[in-house]
Design a protein around this nucleic acid. Structure first.
Lengths: 331, 331
DNA sequence: TTGTATGCGTTATCAG
DNA sequence: CTGATAACGCATACAA
């Protein structure tokens, strides 16, 4: 068994010794709870000693003692999707301000709660969870916020996808499109079901045919495959659950010589960074991932403080019209 | 002070009571260290009790006791860059196999953050650090692996950017290009300096003019600005430090009616997912981010086990020729 | 104003 | 084969 040389850490006892006070005094001073109880001289001595020794409190000990880790877990289905980078940043920025640390867990394609990574989180390093497109495993009782799911047991923070889809459909309808396609995520998630339902209903209300639909994983290659299918239909307008899916249509269209937006229009969702560099630039429903992360963190922090967060927070979303939409050829 | 209802956790004492054994026996069984010392009957009873109670060891207590957190920190400069998603996944996947958890910290643009978030990590929740394009703060003595930097104090894992640039330059030279441009990252990092040096030297050796160079942040908008500059030169071949920068050239080229690859050729770096959906698809130096993350984790794990990892690991990289490169017009 | 004592849940050493 | 028991480093009730 190899012996690791652990950088022998400085403890509060060392600081106490150095400052010539007791360990509890050190704790009092450094936690700020000595306000007015500790003499200025002592306080000064303690701080000096701590600084000289390079003291840093042991998180494990503090957590054990207080039962609070000041860490929240952020669970995402696929960190590979560029949506999550900004989302993490939003959550992390707010968390840091509040003295929290965010632990990102990517459960990958493997959506089962058995995923060991989540087990690890549940084991206790985190005070609460931010769950993207997921709920808490049955029986779990941790404070948690669900992101991008329909209201349920947990407080929810989500994008106003209904409005987003409405805006997209209105735009396309306004342009004169009558035959729609939906490039949907095959991923089982409420937000995607919601989007599909919204589109169907809306089309029905307009007296139009149901959308041709293809489902696919959220990767360019798979989306291109699905896009080829869709392009065989006579639909002229395609709504996509995600910008990456829209990218798939671009790929399929290029292959088949179908021109965007002259021959078909396409609308994405999320406004991922690469949307602008597509040719033509993608018309898409812009979602503020950073804001989503920040809001979710705040909800959790609030719950952790004993203040019940709003049960259902909807973040606005807005259609950004760029170059991938135009009137249909036959209009 | 709001009182939080902590989901009263099941401890090993509860399990012991339930199984009718002592707490230490529970620990022995569950840690697997009772191999052959604990009777099968007792072991069974303990496991049953633990399962029924839904026992999960308290990580803070274990960490405090053992001094080992089984967590490593991964520090990246900008999680918003799609390179890091796969890298995190690679590190996390390997970490999980080894019973570790990865804590991702995005230091973002903000320099002051660097101190703060890294502080949080240094405070102890992690056993070691994976540092992308960064070194350890002076005076720090944690086990750490540096990623994408030149060999120095820390063990290093990096992409073979020299070879990558060579491949790109060879390809362009072979196509007949003689006037080069370099769209470089303004971010101060050794890997970027190395790339620039490599290009200069190589061009010099070929008796060609030094590359026109523009430096920019790694965002499409900024890169487009820099791209406009570059397109005013008479260079016909552009090498970029990152695919996102290449995207900036696409944007600038589209604006000015410059055609890729007929008028100018461009080569990216990384092979980010969106490279294939660009029009034309981007010729780029493919780096395996996932592998990079995995390798870095292994190096750290090795260090943590007391066996010194290789001082300098270079991961191969290979040029993927797609549609953005062609002979120059004047060839 | 400061010090003493205690316990958080584990692991690990040692007796029995 | 199993059970006491002692830390790990910190925060805090209480004593001085």
């Amino acid at each position: 068994m190899a012996e690791i040389t652990v950088p022998s850490r400085v403890t509060s006892v060392d600081v106490a010794r150095r400052a010539g006070v007791s360990q509890s005094t050190v704790s009092l001073v450094l936690s700020g709870k000595g306000r007015g109880r500790i003499s200025a001289r002592t306080e000064e001595a303690v701080r000096a000693a701590a600084a000289e020794l390079g003291y840093r409190p042991n998180v494990a000990a503090r957590t054990l003692r207080t039962g609070v880790a000041r860490t929240v877990g952020l669970v995402v289905p696929d960190i590979t999707n560029p949506f999550f980078g900004p989302m993490l940043r939003g959550a992390q920025a707010e968390a840091m301000k509040a003295g929290y640390t965010v632990m990102l867990v990517d459960i990958g394609e493997d959506r089962t709660w058995e995923a060991r990574s989540v087990e690890a989180l549940l084991a206790g390093p985190s005070d609460g969870l931010l769950l993207f497109e997921a709920g808490l495993p049955p029986g779990e009782t941790q404070p948690a916020i669900a992101i991008e799911v329909l209201p349920g047991d947990l407080p929810v923070v989500r994008l106003d996808v209904e409005s987003g889809f409405d805006q997209a459909i209105d735009h396309l309808l306004g342009l004169g499109h009558r035959r729609f396609g939906h490039l949907a995520a095959s991923f089982e998630a409420q937000t995607f079901e919601l989007r599909h339902a919204r589109l169907r209903e809306r089309l029905e209300r307009e007296g139009l045919a149901a959308p041709v639909t293809a489902r696919t994983n959220i990767t360019f290659a798979d989306a291109a495959r699905a896009g080829r299918e869709l392009l065989e239909s006579d639909a002229t307008a395609f709504v996509c659950d995600d910008d990456m899916l829209a990218g798939g249509i671009y790929l399929a269209a290029r292959e088949r010589g179908v021109r965007i937006p002259q021959d078909v229009s396409v609308v994405g969702f999320d406004d991922l960074a690469f949307a602008v560099v597509l040719d033509p630039p993608l018309t898409t429903v812009a979602a503020d991932a950073q804001e989503l992360g920040a809001t979710a963190f705040h909800a959790l922090a609030s719950a952790l403080d004993g203040v019940p967060p709003p049960a259902d927070q909807k973040l606005p979303v807005r259609l950004v019209v760029r170059g991938s939409t135009a009137p249909p050829r036959d209009a």
